[in-house]
């Protein structure tokens, strides 16, 4: 694997290997402190992001490497009309590995096709965001100790929520999982996710609009934000943005070992009071994201023969 564009680029074995590396980094951070000494990560962020960019940069620094970055198309040569392909070829001359976020779907793929160094997709529009899924998976593994036999509720914007599609794809590879898809009618999971993933693999799922009714069944509750930037129409966004708000009261019938995840940032879909509940895992998830990005950078640089 030269680059990571889609979570499905990783085999189950490679995923297990990344989880094991991340666990080892957590247990023995000093062992990895110089692992990428002298190596440079380029973070090319053509779309606003705080946590993903900082997470990549923190990950590289903790591996002993350096970071050079571009934030916002306005400050880069993209503003002069440079193509993504040319940017990839140019940046490859300066760095050892690239993490790119771009508003257009497929931009990371084009980058990987043209770069001579490994490329990590840090989010291409509403399409893929595989390192978020890696963060989600490490959190599930650390909270549940397994990837199988889980009832996974995903709630909110299931139509445009790229993290949801990737999580469904990734967790569909394991035995005995069931999905509960909770969303307003207008933001249901696209039919291709249902047909190509859930139905094709014969994975049980239910669709509902009622979060509280399904709460007692769930082992994992993955909340998502309704993202303003995915709507062409502001009216639709305003109508749907407050569809689901998780409160302490709504959790009263939930399992005692439920794990609540959220890719963050949240707006108001999880009440701040829920943060004190031991079942709230979303800030742990942020930290886990950094560890998985460290594991991924290590893997890609090793496979490229750079370390």
């Amino acid at each position: 694997m030269k680059s990571l564009i889609d979570i499905l680029d990783l085999t189950t074995e490679e995923l297990d290997e990344l989880i094991a590396t991340a666990q080892d980094i957590i247990a023995n951070p000093a062992k990895y402190a110089e692992a990428c000494r002298g190596k440079k990560l380029a973070t090319l962020f053509f779309e606003p992001s705080t946590r993903t960019r900082m997470s990549f940069e923190a990950a590289m620094y903790e591996l002993g490497g350096n970071v050079i970055s571009v934030t916002g198309a306005a400050s880069s040569s993209a503003a002069k009309g440079e193509s993504v392909a040319d940017t990839a070829k140019t940046v490859s001359c300066y760095t050892d590995i690239i993490a790119i976020r771009h508003p257009k779907e497929g931009a990371a793929y084009v980058t990987a096709k043209n770069a001579s160094v490994p490329v990590i997709n840090a989010g291409d529009g509403g399409h893929c965001h595989p390192t978020q899924t890696l963060a989600d998976l490490l959190t599930i593994y650390r909270e549940k100790g397994r990837f199988s036999g889980l009832t996974i509720g995903v709630c909110g914007d299931l139509k445009f929520g790229r993290t949801v599609h990737s999580l469904i794809n990734a967790m569909s590879r394991y035995e005995g999982n069931k999905f509960v898809l909770i969303s307003p009618e207008e933001l249901k999971v696209p039919s291709y996710v249902k047909k190509d993933v859930l139905q094709q693999k014969n994975i049980p799922y239910v669709q509902t609009t009622d979060l509280e009714a399904v709460m007692p069944e769930l082992d994992i509750l993955y909340m998502t934000r309704v993202q303003r930037e995915r709507f062409f129409n502001e009216e639709d966004y305003l109508r749907l943005k407050d569809s689901y708000i998780l409160t302490v009261d709504k959790l009263k019938n939930a399992k005692r070992d439920l794990a609540i995840l959220h890719p963050l940032p949240r707006v108001n879909e999880i009440s701040v009071a829920v943060d004190d509940d031991p079942r709230a895992c979303y800030f742990k998830q942020v930290l886990n994201g950094k560890y998985m990005r460290m594991a991924l950078i290590l893997k890609l640089l090793r496979e490229a023969g750079q370390i």
Binding site: V84, H102, K104, A107, V110, D196
Partner: peptide, 21 residues
């Protein structure tokens, strides 16, 4: 036809489709 696709703004890219089903 996806307006969010990279091919919508990068004119030099080939439009490539693969058979998935």
């Amino acid at each position: 036809r996806n307006p969010r696709c990279i091919t919508s703004c990068e004119q030099e890219l080939d439009h490539v489709f693969k058979l998935t089903d």
